[in-house]
Computed example of a mutant assay.
Amino acid sequence: MTGVFDFEAPLPGGGVQPLADWRGDVLLMVNVASECGFTPQYAGLQTLHERYAAQGLRVLGFPCNQFGGQEPGDAEQIRACGLNYGVTFPVFARIEVNGAGAHPLYRYLKEQAPGALGTRAIKWNFTKFLVGRDGAVLERFAPQRKPQDLAGAIEQALAAARPDDVR
């Protein structure tokens, strides 16, 4: 069975990060942009990262320039934006989330958790996907949903047993 942990994410300096490195953790995956009206959500995402990291939450940022050209910079400019918000969670290389060039991870996320009315396309920056410890996509959240509003769903996902726990 395919799950999120079967994918890799491109690193800003080249190479890839296997998502399997976070097997057993809960992931909050977000397509981010530096020049978006939702960019201040970086601060809320960082707060979630700090609050729940010890329990196994990993926030992962995926820069995307497909919505209004709001992520036009190079890797260093993208990193600088994250630093403005105190971001310490991983922010990967820029990817596409829609269309023929969509990263395979985002094709999978959209298939597993369609948006409103069953639409698959990502509508804007800061769409969020919550992934359980087993790599299954649990829920998709619209860009307007503030990170702090996800605490209940995150806590529920964190409360689930790790896949390797013996009962």
Rank of each mutant, 00 (worst) to 15 (best):
residue 59 V to K: 02
residue 42 Y to I: 10
residue 54 A to G: 11
residue 42 Y to M: 12
residue 48 L to M: 12
residue 39 T to H: 15
residue 43 A to L: 13
residue 58 R to Q: 15
residue 58 R to D: 02
residue 44 G to P: 08
residue 49 H to D: 04
residue 47 T to L: 05
residue 33 A to Y: 07
residue 51 R to N: 08
residue 35 E to S: 12
residue 52 Y to D: 05
residue 45 L to R: 14
residue 55 Q to L: 12
residue 38 F to E: 02
residue 56 G to L: 08
residue 39 T to C: 14
residue 42 Y to C: 13
residue 46 Q to F: 12
residue 42 Y to D: 07
residue 55 Q to D: 14
residue 61 G to T: 05
residue 35 E to I: 03
residue 47 T to V: 10
residue 52 Y to M: 06
residue 40 P to S: 13
residue 32 V to N: 06
residue 60 L to A: 10
residue 36 C to T: 05
residue 57 L to A: 05
residue 34 S to L: 00
residue 53 A to G: 02
residue 36 C to S: 14
residue 50 E to M: 06
residue 58 R to W: 01
residue 49 H to W: 04
residue 57 L to P: 01
residue 37 G to E: 00
residue 34 S to K: 00
residue 43 A to F: 09
residue 33 A to M: 09
residue 49 H to Y: 09
residue 43 A to N: 08
residue 56 G to S: 12
residue 39 T to L: 14
residue 52 Y to W: 15
residue 43 A to I: 08
residue 37 G to M: 04
residue 43 A to W: 06
residue 39 T to K: 15
residue 36 C to E: 02
residue 38 F to T: 10
residue 54 A to Q: 13
residue 36 C to L: 06
residue 32 V to M: 07
residue 36 C to A: 13
residue 62 F to L: 02
residue 51 R to Y: 00
residue 43 A to K: 15
residue 62 F to E: 00
residue 52 Y to P: 03
residue 58 R to T: 08
residue 48 L to V: 08
residue 43 A to R: 15
residue 35 E to H: 15
residue 59 V to W: 01
residue 62 F to W: 00
residue 47 T to N: 07
residue 34 S to E: 01
